[in-house]
Design a protein around this nucleic acid. Structure first.
Length: 587
RNA sequence: GCCCGCGUAGCUCAGCGGAUAGAGCAACCGCCUCCUAAGCGGUAGGUCGCAGGUUCGACUCCUGCCGCGGGCGCCA
């Protein structure tokens, strides 16, 4: 059990002795380090609940506390705060524990099957700034979940089956009418080479989309093409496959460059052959009804604060929508994957859509009550004007370009500061690549996911401050000490009692990690991990200033410090890994 | 109009109903004969949008208002 966990347990026992709920015993790291290392505030709410005097309750708890020799001081302050300070020997013992534990004292949870959906990627769109948050946040969540012991399946869930496919088909037909894909009498195989590039598609889609708003016949043609694609028209299927292939090729490259991995590259179309049966089933169950030719599901409930419109399951022409495939996908994940939690990392504008899909899934029994369905919302990435980030031309900046900019900024910073001067050109480039990804990721994950944040490459790649590069640099310096120690034949040894506040503070920071990782997962909020990683780096840097490890003359103390250095590096490396940030060997 | 989110230092943002609201940047003052100064220490900077309420205690919970953003059935 973690340090805070076992302290909380002991305080819980003491509350129980007084006949009070043990949950009041929660102990946290003190927010008044000048007074104590830890605090338990439970006496106040406990006293309120029991109608007793808080100071008396606190006094009773302290009396009932099993006396052990690891507590240097337990005292009551203010209206009933209980302050706790451990002995230096106890801190050393705790350091020995976490340094020897590859999990840094973080518990393993009961494993569950979890699906994470990175919705938002679409055919015909290169990875752009709008994909950055779900990709970075979702990736961090999958790393955290796996570390806690869950079985995670991540799915990019490409948007590849809706009306925009029809728009692309008619757009290509307009431009290249002689292609065999449009000839209903075509026989044999279709060309293996795509007639269009992703750039072509990226130009065609907005053009057609805009024109359908004023041209009803074009809109009708797009609808019809969508339906025919979904019905299996061979030429359209073949052409569509090219759309998917050229899109995925580009998106795979971008996602890989960000050092993100998806287990599945499924799309809406993956469940295409399940849609009809599902609609029939919903009609049969009486969950869905026909309405003006369309199939809808009434999802409004009596207690609703606002009117929740019906979910549109099938258009009047019978075509599927993304709500249809989302629902079928949800059912598949529960049935085939045994998913107990499905997390949709999709921007906040789709809240209503998910509410409708989730309600329908519950009504239809596709998601039993014990299955968690959650929309993980996030805010926008803003430019200097406080509006969502755009390029000078008004388009959405591509992820590829953002990364390239971050990379050249990192290179420039390194040259300026004469960092990595002794590295080869290839090594410098590798470092710049790692720094660029870290800059973007930490710049994003340092913010709470629901808040909008302003994208500032200069700040994110900065040499100074609360940035990804700072954390990487801190880790590299730590590793450097260990490398030099190893060269000198020195290694870690049993921790001895700390004698300075910088040592104590560092151990205390490390001790908070288990609760922080659990909280980050509970709240789906990686920024808590980002914050703790930053605090640990800061605590280490203060230790680094005060305690010269390699120059220490007392061998026992030096060995103890090396253990502290190792434990810090292992923990920091883990936290950064949970954020998806890689540490270069040298910088 | 209704619903959701946001409003914290000059700027960018943290903040788990608890003690004196924190960090980074920018400003100012210091620290490299010593493990990487992309570092460390210090000073200054706040009616936590406004007004009520609940509570021993509110940035945190509730209500109203103001401001910004978003959503509201055959798009995704």
């Amino acid at each position: 059990m973690s340090l805070l966990g076992s302290l909380s347990d002991r305080f819980g026992d003491a509350f129980e002795v007084l006949g009070l709920d043990r949950s009041f015993g929660e102990v946290v790291v003190s927010n008044r380090p000048d007074l104590a290392q830890f605090q338990c505030n439970g006496a106040l709410p406990a006293a309120k609940a029991a109608g007793r005097n808080p100071r008396e309750v606190a006094l009773g708890v302290v009396d009932a506390l099993a006396s052990t020799d690891d507590l240097a001081d337990v005292s009551i302050a203010g209206p009933g705060f209980i302050n706790v300070t451990l002995t230096d020997e106890a801190l050393a013992a705790h350091l020995a524990r976490i340094a020897a534990d590859p999990r840094h004292d973080v518990p393993r949870l009961r494993a569950e099957d979890i699906v994470i959906d990175f919705g938002g990627y679409n055919v015909a769109k290169a990875t752009h700034v709008g994909h950055m948050r779900p990709t970075i946040i979702g990736d961090s969540l999958q790393r955290i979940a796996r570390f806690l012991g869950h079985r995670v399946t991540s799915d990019i869930h490409l948007g590849d089956w809706g009306l925009q496919m029809g728009m692309l088909i008619v757009g290509v037909a307009e431009r290249m009418p002689d292609l065999p894909y449009f000839d209903p009498d075509h026989e044999g195989a279709y060309p293996t080479e795509s007639p269009v590039t992703l750039d072509d598609l990226a130009e065609i889609y907005p053009d057609v989309s805009a024109r359908t708003k004023t041209d009803p016949s074009l809109a009708e043609a797009a609808r019809k093409a969508t339906l025919q694609l979904q019905s299996g028209r061979p030429g359209y299927r073949a052409l569509w496959q090219h759309f998917v292939d050229v899109t995925l090729e580009s998106q795979r490259r971008d996602v890989t460059a960000l050092d993100v991995h998806f287990d599945l590259w499924y799309g809406e179309s993956t469940v295409a052959d399940r849609v009809d049966a599902m609609v029939d089933d919903l009609l049969e169950q009486g969950v869905a009804t026909e309405n003006q030719g369309a199939v809808v599901v009434e999802v409004a409930e009596p207690g609703d604060k606002t009117e929740i419109p019906p979910l549109l399951l099938a258009k009047s022409d019978g075509a599927a929508l993304y709500t249809t495939t989302d629902l079928a996908t949800l059912a598949m994940r529960v049935q085939d994957f045994g998913a107990k939690e499905i997390l949709y990392v999709v921007d906040a504008r789709q809240a209503l859509h998910f509410e409708q899909v989730f309600r329908t899934a519950r009504k239809a029994g596709y998601a039993p009550p014990d299955v968690v369905l959650e929309h993980i919302e996030f805010g926008t990435v803003n430019g200097p004007d406080g509006r969502p980030l755009r390029t000078r031309e008004g388009g959405l900046p591509l992820l590829h370009d953002l990364l390239a900019d971050a990379r050249s900024a990192a290179m420039a910073r390194m040259s300026e500061a004469r960092i990595g001067a002794d590295l080869s050109e290839a090594e410098r480039e590798a470092v710049a690549t790692a720094v660029a990804a870290a800059a973007l990721k930490f710049g994003d994950l340092a913010n709470h996911r629901t808040s909008n944040y302003s994208f500032d490459l200069d700040r994110f790649t900065s040499l100074e401050g609360k940035t990804g590069p700072y954390l990487q640099y801190a880790a590299v310096r730590i590793a450097s000490i260990l490398r030099k120690a190893a060269d000198a034949g020195l290694g870690g040894g049993p921790p001895v009692a700390p004698t300075t506040d910088v040592e104590r503070a560092l151990v205390l920071r490390l001790a908070t990690v288990p609760e922080i990782v659990l909280r980050a997962w509970d709240l789906r909020a990686p920024n808590h991990i980002a914050e703790t990683a930053y605090e640990i780096a800061g605590a280490f840097n203060r230790f680094y200033e005060h305690c010269h490890v390699l120059g220490e003359e007392d061998p026992a103390r030096q060995a103890s410090w090396l253990t502290l250095v190792e434990g810090t590096l292992a923990t920091l490396t883990r936290l950064l890994d949970l954020l998806g940030i890689r540490i270069p060997d040298r910088m």
